[in-house]
Design a protein around this nucleic acid. Structure first.
Length: 801
DNA sequence: CATTCCCGCCACCGG
DNA sequence: CCGGTGGCGGGAATG
């Protein structure tokens, strides 16, 4: 047995924790002066700390206090074991909070604060070892940097934006996305059979990560002291931390399960070692890192529930990272850096060491793995083509599936009261004017109407000039964001008979329960406000299956995503507790530029939303595969390696919207998943009769692409799992709506459709009984199995005849 | 039992 | 060579 009372510190700790207002904490080494603009408040941190403490701890404290104050008599009795610090009190997370509380989030640039490990350890009463853990991850985020032994400089969150951007970039350059998908897929295949025999293909194809020996990603402005930083060998924790973060930044639903992360991180260093112990260790480390990141509020713990059971995972809650626009922003900083290579191009890249050793310019082209990927894809296609008819699943090709099909990629995110407050979304008095890094505001808090959450999806809220209604558009988290406005118009109104009710009626709670649970920390805070909070989050975690195919797949998201909502004032209320008002439209990634920059052309094609918008918001938004859009339509777009790879498959992006566009696109475009989307849109718009669109599908089937779709159906069954629950709930709602709509095909009504469709899609396999409208259902099912991506049931019906 | 992750041994490394 | 660093994994606490 260990002796708990190693250090009498306990009591002290408690003390510290309980007093929010005082500065009992040892004053930071340097004179603490909080810059006026600085949002940081000593108190706030402490409060958080406290709130973070689990109820148990608090109760314990109380007990203790009682005993103290009361009489000594009892003391003896309970004092025994009662007083134990309890593991939680020693948790790294808590420790980290305390640590962070010592320094301002945004220290004034003028004078730097230094961190002396000795002091810290002493003041926080912890073993040094623990501090290292914290500092290491902070260092990985460039929130601190090491000066010398025992000495660190505190940077606070100033560097965060850049760091994240850099990390994201590196993550993208890497094939993390693919890796994630690969792993997920593997799991899927693995499912029943204990053996992983056929894995070879993928293993080989991906080569997991041959090269990856990565070095620490550095930032320009940060004074990473001397070469020491890169001194080979250590940094493992730091590197791990960075990689971990990258995973979040790169993956579409910004949720990463520990398991996946561990596998990827392991895979990088050593080729496929399924060493069990190693895995365990990795997980341990990840927990350490995760705890720190959680303290920073960059991530939060959730659980993804799969059929197999629920698995621990983490969801990114940090700031959305900009799409990495041409380094523009960074230039200033980068200029400072004095990297060895003296290229004339100032960019983060230069300053940061690339993960992959590939020297010089690292083009994706050079990554053998990528090449392999492409090849394998082609092979798959071939296979598929050869046997088009059979809806057989081809494992190899699975990664082609759009993420949304597999798992859900969209979430309804609602904010907790707390979050709202923080964001200033509500009318919180002073919240807004924070001196946040100037760069990201654009996305996040446009109007105060709906809180922008940065959950997996970044919602944009657009005020509608005319109507005054605002809409929330969910953009694909990953890079590009397009900001455009469109008018909601009639769309908002649910068709009379239709299911408008559907969404509304749905009980938010149901949705919520399903998916994620928050960490204790959060929970603690929420309790008080449970009324509000309860409903909040209905996110789904779809980590698993998710994105098979890179971006293009995302494009397909169309399905999922459209959520319609009533946009009256109520929506506000509702939104707070429930969903944000307006349509939530997932634009996978469109342009990343600002709206302002959108050239006319672009607008027409991609951004056209505004113009076409009137006809139907959905239309505009509806998603064509973003990737396609990018590649095809918009020259300006930044094309990532991934996109390129995919591009072959993706053919025409149907920019949609304008008739002209449509026609042109349809003509030129080869059939591909997007076509379905297109149809969908068209139908909605009323441009195309229901029947018409159908044709598209046939095409799909013949086309290589179709294979994907087929597969998709497959996957949906197994892989998605966790999503299942969510979708279910949603489904119900939708269904009702559908049936209603079904009857009357007026353009406006269509709105709800998408969602419904999606749901049904998921459902496909089992089919949730309950359906009164058999015909429609069966049809849809059928279609799906065939490989149709998603087509509104009604359409299906049409097509049928 | 499973998940979470604290503790601290001890190898390394850099001064 | 010494003391700061920080891999690493047992196994305790917690769920």
């Amino acid at each position: 047995l260990k002796t708990p009372l190693k250090q009498a510190a306990t009591s002290q700790l408690v003390l510290t924790e309980r007093q929010p207002d005082c500065q009992p904490l040892t004053p930071p080494p340097k004179p603490k002066e909080t810059p006026p603009a600085d949002p940081w408040t000593p108190t706030s941190n402490l409060k958080m700390l406290i709130s973070a403490a689990s109820p148990e701890i608090r109760s314990r404290e109380q007990r203790r206090q009682l005993s103290d104050s009361s009489s000594e008599a009892h003391l003896l009795g309970d004092e025994y074991e009662k007083s134990q610090p309890s593991r939680k009190e020693k948790s790294l997370g808590l420790l980290c909070h305390k640590f962070l509380a010592r320094y301002p989030e945004y220290p004034s640039p003028s004078q730097k604060s230094y961190i002396c490990l000795d002091e810290v350890t002493e003041e926080l009463h912890v073993e040094r070892r623990r501090i290292y853990d914290i500092v290491n991850v902070l260092e990985s985020l460039h929130m601190v940097s090491r000066l010398a032994r025992n000495r660190y400089v505190w940077h606070g969150r100033h560097n965060l934006p850049q760091t994240l951007q850099a990390l994201k970039k590196v993550g993208e350059e890497n094939k993390y996305i693919q890796q994630i998908q690969m792993i997920r897929r593997r799991e899927y295949e693995h499912e029943f059979e204990p053996d992983g025999e056929r894995n070879e293909e993928m293993a080989s194809s991906f080569g997991s990560s041959e090269q990856s020996e990565m070095s620490f990603v550095e930032l320009p402005g940060v004074e990473f002291r001397a070469a020491s930083v890169n001194g080979r060998k250590y940094k493992s924790l730091r590197v791990m931390s960075q990689k971990f973060v990258m995973l979040f930044l790169v993956s579409t639903p910004q949720i990463v399960s520990l398991e996946v992360a561990a596998k990827i991180l392991i895979g990088e260093d050593q080729l496929e070692d399924l060493d069990k112990s190693k895995f365990k260790t990795k997980i341990r480390r990840l927990y350490d890192i995760a705890n720190v990141l959680s303290s920073l509020k960059l991530i939060k713990k959730v659980h993804v529930t799969e059929e197999r059971g629920r698995k621990p995972a983490f969801k990114w809650t940090g700031p959305e990272v900009l799409p990495n626009t041409q380094d523009t922003k960074l230039e200033a900083t980068s200029a400072t850096c004095s990297p060895p290579s003296s290229e004339s191009i100032p960019s983060i890249e230069q300053c940061s060491k690339t993960l992959f050793p590939s020297k010089g310019k690292q083009n994706f082209t050079r990554h053998s793995s990528l090449i392999k990927l492409v090849k394998s894809i082609e092979n798959d296609r071939r296979k598929i083509q050869s046997a088009p008819t059979s809806p057989v699943k081809i494992s190899a090709s699975m990664y082609l599936f759009p993420s949304f099909l597999l798992g859900t990629s969209f979430f309804f995110v609602s904010l907790t009261a707390e979050e709202l407050q923080m964001k200033g979304a509500l009318s919180s008095p002073e919240a807004v004017p924070k001196p946040e890094p100037p760069q990201q505001p654009a996305l996040s808090q446009p109007l105060g109407v709906c809180p922008a959450s940065h959950s997996s999806v970044s919602p944009l809220i657009l005020p509608h000039p005319q109507s005054g209604v605002s809409y929330a558009i969910y953009l694909h988290p990953s890079q590009a964001h397009t900001v455009t406005t469109y008018s909601p118009g009639f769309m908002l109104q649910p068709p009379p008979g239709a299911n408008a009710t559907g969404i509304k009626s749905s009980n938010p709670k149901e949705l919520n329960k399903i998916t994620t649970e928050e960490g204790d920390t959060q929970r603690a805070m929420e309790e008080p406000t449970k009324s509000l909070a309860a409903e909040e989050r209905a996110d789904t975690k779809s980590e698993t299956s998710s994105q098979r195919c890179l971006k293009r797949s995302q494009a397909l998201q169309e399905n999922n995503l459209i959520k319609r909502r009533k946009s009256d004032e109520e929506s506000l209320d509702t939104s707070l507790t429930f969903f944000p008002s307006g349509y939530l439209i997932p634009l996978t990634h469109c342009t990343h530029g600002n709206k302002a920059e959108c050239s006319n052309k672009e607008k027409a094609g991609v951004c056209s939303l505004q113009h076409s918008a009137y006809s139907s918001p959905i239309t505009g938004v509806i998603p064509m595969p973003a990737s396609e859009l990018k590649t095809v339509n918009i020259p300006a777009f930044h094309i990532t390696p991934l996109n390129i790879m995919l591009s072959p498959n993706s053919i025409a992006a149907a920019p949609v919207l304008s008739n002209s566009c449509l026609s042109s696109s349809s003509t030129s475009s080869a059939p591909n998943p997007s076509s379905s989307a297109l149809n969908f849109m068209l139908q909605h718009i009323g441009l195309i009769p229901a029947g018409v669109q159908v044709p598209a599908n046939p095409v799909l089937q013949h086309v290589p692409v179709s294979s994907q779709s087929e597969n998709i159906s497959h996957n949906s069954g197994s892989t998605n799992v966790q999503e299942g629950k969510v979708s279910k709930n949603t489904l119900q709602l939708d269904r009702g709506g559908l049936s209603g709509n079904y009857a009357a095909p007026s353009a406006p009504k269509e709105l709800q459709e998408p969602q419904a469709v999606t749901e049904s899609f998921f459902r496909t396999p089992g089919g949730p009984n309950t359906e009164p409208s058999p015909s429609a259902n069966s049809d849809s099912t059928q279609r799906i199995s065939q490989g149709t991506l998603y087509i509104p049931q009604r359409k299906l019906e049409v097509s049928e005849d």
